[in-house]
Design a protein around this nucleic acid. Structure first.
Lengths: 337, 337
DNA sequence: TTCATTAATGAAAACCTTTTCATTTTCTTA
DNA sequence: TAAGAAAATGAAAAGGTTTTCATTAATGAA
């Protein structure tokens, strides 16, 4: 691969001048510039980004680090698209890392990203109070959190109002006349789930419905099989729920499988409402009522926050809270008599 | 951030020695090594990967480039997981790029990856004969193709037997008694679709069924809406098909939506078979019969081919062809009288 | 024409490593 | 104890850029 030196030689200028042409910085004689450019295309020269980064660093690597828990989860892949679209529009490439909700992987990737001197890192933090994040912040690499907040730290964040999401979903079911509403949720991992649960409980209380511990099931939100199991148990309860609120899309999937397997009719015999407006929500029968998270838009916003930081290192961190919305389809109806 | 120099100073050795400790190469006195290591953790020193790469390059960047057409497509995200799992197991980070089936984006990312001097690039090539790929090959960066072949080039490849996939799907429908089988396919983009179509036509011919042009619909395989439209038209034909074979998961989604919208019962009134065993295949009613591509395994294989190349630069390129398999669920049945 | 100013260019340092080659130290063996 | 070999270490170059500072060339004013 050709380098500055070769180009400089062929164009009869110093490497400094070539560098200037590349960066369009300082003034260089139009004629010289022309000549240099010609040579560059002739040798099809591409600046070596590694060398550029080594010399420059500090926010001009055109590289954005992105850590997500699970690429297979549509919610996250939508976010990735949002981020990627903005990044590409700004000539940035994205290093995408899959953390698997595994702190060790997150740690590994944080180290890698730091030592690759990316211009910023976007992630839903798992390691809440670890020194890893602390270290990154110290280096001055901007961090943007999405989906989850970073406990005590003062960083840019874009989240959804999860409590509201839980409230909306549950209220809708209550409006339909349900009183025995189960929730598939999770205590492990993060606040998102417990907040959705909080919204669920608030809706119940506001409507004078007692919270029934039996109907609150906690499991691994990454496993639809787990949700399937939980749902099967719920259905076989003595006094089973007439509606189920699944707090993420994988759990929704498992719940639906269980219901089908038990030969219950949706929504006549049991109602179900999901979280995340996944691609297949419209395709199933009956089409699925969901609380939609504006995933793609969250991605856009997160990326915008990042570029805002790139523009102005000293900009004050902000927290953007996005609103979930209810999309009513046909998987929710009045409870059976 | 601390660097070699600081560590060397604090440990009272030269930076050469520190480097040696890091790389565990050459021999260095165990005592010295101990001391250096202590200092490294004390200053929590991390080697600067950018500098390492600049100096070293040539296959030791521990960085793997991955270009995929659409992160939102489950088929690809499964592959990504396969690749990522192997990569992480080998201490490699993955730069994931989303090409959107857009040649310009692919070009951009190829340039970026090249100039980041990644150790290898895994991709389903769009640019068949462009000089971009040629350029990469010239630099000696290993290229692994998956899902699609790289026309004339002699590179490692892992693909699925698409013709076989089309054949399996169609044969299954014929076995059920169908004679009017529509196919949703694509002529744009790549051979995968035309090969699936070839298998479809072979199955028909072998069973003495004439290929009916009316039933072959070509559209954009990235858009389920497009497939929905095509399906609606098919259903409203004078002599409509009794079964539909959708050649990828997005098209399957669109087809199902159309069928539901037209109030046809699956499989009593119309059968449908999809391509790709997506997460929601089991959750819909009735559960979807599909031709499964071993996506995750393809990812594993592709990554393995890459690491094989890393181990031995001169290893001969191979082409791995994986077998699709039929997963029979309940969306296919005998045609109505 | 001459001096002052501005425009254009270049030399060399810096970024942080790895690696080659040379030097010093330690250990063997005669 | 000396000489030779092996082990341990270090100095300096290299990798491809950007950037600072210095220098040369061109322009304008007096």
């Amino acid at each position: 691969m050709s380098n500055l030196k070769e180009v400089a030689k062929k164009a009869n200028v110093s490497i400094t001048t070539v560098s200037r042409v590349i960066n369009g910085s300082d003034k260089v004689n139009p004629k010289t510039s022309e000549r240099v450019k010609k040579v560059m295309t002739m040798l099809d020269y591409q600046p070596n980004r590694v060398a550029q980064r080594l010399r420059t660093a500090n926010g001009r690597s055109k590289l954005l680090g992105l850590i997500i828990p699970d690429i297979k989860n549509q919610f996250y892949s939508n976010i990735v698209r949002g981020i990627e679209d903005v990044a590409y529009g700004n000539d940035y490439a994205v290093i995408l890392c899959n953390s698997d909700e595994n702190p060790n992987k997150e740690r590994f990737y944080l180290e890698v990203l730091k030592s690759e001197s990316v211009d910023g890192i976007i992630l839903p933090p798992i390691l809440q109070f670890g020194e890893e994040i602390e270290n990154i912040i110290k280096t001055g690499i901007p961090i943007i959190c999405f989906d989850r907040k970073l406990g005590n730290k003062n960083v840019d964040t874009v989240v959804i109002d999860n409590e509201m999401g839980g409230y909306i979903a549950t209220s809708h079911l209550i409006d339909k006349g349900h009183k025995q509403i189960a929730i598939l949720t999770s205590s492990i991992l993060f606040s998102s789930f417990s907040e959705r649960q909080k919204g669920y409980e608030r809706a119940l209380k506001e409507n004078g419905i007692e919270v029934d511990k039996r109907l609150i099931r906690e499991g691994d939100p990454r496993s639809s099989d787990n949700a399937k199991l939980m749902t099967t148990k719920l259905i076989n309860l003595d006094n089973p729920p007439t509606a189920i609120f699944a707090t993420n899309n994988l759990m929704t999937l498992g719940a639906i499988e269980a219901i089908n397997e038990q030969n219950l009719k949706i929504p006549e015999e049991i109602s179900i409402i999901g979280f995340d407006d996944v691609s297949w929500a419209k395709a199933i029968t009956p089409p699925l009522t969901v609380v939609k998270q504006p995933a793609y838009e969250m991605g856009l916003k997160a990326a915008e926050l990042f570029f805002r930081k790139v523009e102005d290192k000293s900009s004050e961190p902000v927290e953007i809270v996005m609103e979930p919305s209810l999309i009513i389809r046909q998987s929710t109806a009045s409870p059976p008599k």
